[in-house]
Amino acid sequence: MSDNLDKLTVKQYQKISDSNSGKSNIVKNCIMAFIFGGLICTIAQGYSDLLASKPVVRVIGILDEKSIGALTVLFMVFLGSLLTALNVYDCIGTVAGAGSIVPITGFANSVVSPAMEYRSEGLILGVGAQMFQVAGPVLVYGTASSVLVGLIYYLVKI
């Protein structure tokens, strides 16, 4: 701080800044996240039920629960990627907040959006190097913590 602002200390300023800075509406954001997050999960459930429905079974045969789960995840990742590519997912995110970030469609969005953004810097140094800019930490620490939890589970079982 300079001598021009002799009446303003850093401590005082934190208070002034806090009192003038608007806060996010947590209640509204939570409600929107609940609605949109639920909607995305309902779509996934609908797709999963469709795979187990009679007309579909007649065409593709009976699928076990694991395969239905995997196909549903694939479908949702495809949906998230498609909506990202069509410039729609970010608009949903503005309203839905965590509701569209937390489901797996949000994960797809976090991989596809940097891939699109860095396409201009080439396939290797652009798309290849930057694709996991947002999702990378989730993958690294997700994998690491799953190993750790697995180890604890193994030891507990012994």
């Binding site: 907040g97 940097p114 953004e117």
Partner: peptide, 17 residues
Amino acid sequence: EKQYRFPLELGGQRTPT
């Protein structure tokens, strides 16, 4: 946005400030 924040198509909310 690309330089300072996140990719353009990443879905998220902005704070009021």
